[in-house]
Amino acid sequence: MKKFSPAIKLTPLLRDATKVTLKISEKAIAKKEQVSNFMTDIADVFLFILRIFKETFSRNFEFREFFYQCYKIGYKTLPLISITGAIMGLVLTIQSRPTLANFGAVSLLPGMVAVSLIREMGPVITALICAGKIGSGMGAELGSMRVTEQIDAMEVSSTNPMKFLVVPRVLAATVMIPILILYADALGILGSWAGANIKGDVTFGLFFRQAFRYVDFVDFLPAVIKSVFFGAVIGIVGCYKGYNAGRGTESVGVAANSAVVIGSLLVIIMDMIAVQITDML
């Protein structure tokens, strides 16, 4: 008869239990590190924003660089925004016309297009395009400057790179993107008039009057305010990602890509918040 030995039976069980406990501990440590890294990133972003504020209101503002960035962001994005704005209005008109015609409400078409362009479509679509063009441009430009030590070179030659590179870009985006959005709205209405004339015959004067009969100041104001925030967010995200890019060339692509992805996502989230706030008022 075999002798019963609990120790022999328990050893494999204890070994398995230890393995499981170790695995759980490793996973817990990895999760803790992930959470800790995420919190550090959030703190970094806040410190970055605080530094932008501090440098904006400190002495020796880089006006020349600010105007150059306004030119780059505004003028050089104009063709893209013009085409997008006009097509936005045209498509919206062509798509909405049959439905409105079914209800005998084609006369409401200019007003409907104008309100939807000014309140929602103009700001969001233009901001998303700007996040793609301007945000990625900033991320890639500052990222490559970081990788090739140009930002370090600026720092050692007693130039504050935050003041010279980041502040003018963020402010230029904050100023120019709302202007681009208003411009896109205007071209959208023009495109809408062109769309209305495909199957109808309406003068621009009449179309314009009908469009703005339904547009109030309360439609404009929230849209302009949220456009300013969209601009600031696109500028901050683009600059943050580029300025804090890693050391390898791969980091430039990562910075540009994440500037677009995070910038676009934040635009959508901020739009949702803005809509909720506007709805409550």
Binding site: M145, T148, Q150, A153, V156
Partner: peptide
């Protein structure tokens, strides 16, 4: 830093500026 000159391994010239502007900058 105004009293120190630093030559970077990569040169670190500002890509968007001409040689003249690079020299004017500091």
């Amino acid at each position: 830093r105004m009293k120190i000159g630093f030559l970077f391994q990569s040169g670190a010239l500002y890509d968007s500026m001409t040689v003249k502007q690079n020299l004017e900058f500091p």
